[in-house]
């Protein structure tokens, strides 16, 4: 899965799950779109589904400080790519 493909999936999640349309890649999601800690937890569940993995508690706590922008989220997902399979990728 390419970076571009990851971005498409993340944007889909933001549109469908969080009703946030096309946020800027480096916009602060909390400040600009009211994306709060509850949303961040829900996003991690979506990322778990996407990657077909179960993230441990420490990984999630670490993620909470990093997923403030779309680019930050995509960076986070990319870190898991070498060792995991992205759900639905390569269809």
């Amino acid at each position: 899965m390419t970076r571009q493909e990851i971005e498409v999936r993340i944007y889909d999640i933001f549109r469908d799950q969080f009703e946030i349309e096309n946020p800027g890649p480096d916009e602060d999601l909390r400040e600009v779109h009211g994306f709060d800690s509850i949303d961040a937890i829900e996003l991690l569940i979506e990322i778990e589904k996407l990657l077909q993995v179960q993230l441990d508690q420490e990984t999630k706590k670490d993620a909470m400080t990093r997923i403030r922008t779309i680019n930050g989220i995509c960076d986070y997902v990319e870190e898991f790519l070498p060792s995991t399979r992205v759900a639905g990728a390569g269809k």
Binding site: I38, I41, E42, I45, E48, Q54
Partner: peptide, 13 residues
Amino acid sequence: ANLAGAIGAVDYL
């Protein structure tokens, strides 16, 4: 086995 994850973050709220 993953039932804990089936409970959304907002369900308690």
